[in-house]
Amino acid sequence: MTITNALAGLAVENITVAMAFYERLFGRQPDARPMSEVAEWKFSTGGWVQVFTDADRAGSSLVTLIVSDINELVDDLAGKDIKPVAKRSGDFAKTAIYRDPDGNQLVFSQTLRNTY
């Protein structure tokens, strides 16, 4: 089996509210709206984030997104009035943790060393 890509799903209660947050977070509108209750953002080096309506599971999702410069990301999001709930740093990575309006956890991580 060869896995060629990944799609991370985030369950939300209200797609309109969630889209406004994610458009601000990612700085652009979704790349796809395959259904009225789904919005998807594609990343240039692979992978997608899919935000979808599922009131029963809203707020229980987690996604980790790898960035090249965590400090730049934190500064950029602070300028959009999006603040981390926590920051962590270790020998291998630095992270900033955010929550969307439903409480889903968004972890942004910068790898400091190649661990693979």
Rank of each mutant, 00 (worst) to 15 (best):
I82A: 02
A55C: 03
E72F: 05
G27H: 05
G9I: 11
P101E: 05
A93T: 14
E37Q: 11
F21S: 10
E23F: 00
K87E: 15
T4C: 01
N104S: 08
E40S: 08
A78C: 02
T16C: 00
K94E: 14
L10V: 15
E23G: 05
F92W: 04
Y22F: 14
T4V: 13
D91A: 14
D76H: 10
T16S: 03
G27S: 03
V38K: 02
K94A: 06
Y98L: 08
K94T: 13
N71D: 15
D100T: 08
N114T: 11
A58H: 02
R57V: 01
N104T: 07
R113E: 11
Y98M: 06
I15T: 03
T111K: 06
R113L: 13
V49P: 03
A11L: 08
T2E: 12
S68W: 00
R33G: 07
M1D: 15
V12H: 00
A18C: 08
D102Q: 08
S60Y: 07
L112M: 06
V74N: 08
A58P: 01
N71C: 01
K94L: 01
Y22C: 11
V67S: 10
R113K: 14
A55K: 13
F108C: 11
A78N: 09
R24C: 11
Y98K: 06
L73A: 11
A93P: 00
S36E: 15
K42L: 10
I97W: 03
G79F: 02
F52C: 12
A11G: 07
T4D: 08
N114M: 06
G59L: 12
V12F: 02
A86Q: 12
V74L: 07
G59W: 09
A58L: 04
L62M: 10
W41N: 02
P34Y: 03
A93V: 14
D76F: 01
R113V: 12
T45A: 06
T45C: 00
Q110E: 15
D102N: 13
F92M: 06
G46R: 07
D31K: 03
G79H: 01
D31Y: 04
T4H: 11
A58W: 01
L25Q: 08
S109R: 10
L7R: 06
M19V: 05
A55Q: 09
F108A: 06
R113H: 07
A6P: 00
G59H: 08
F108L: 12
V107P: 01
Q105T: 15
K83H: 14
M1P: 13
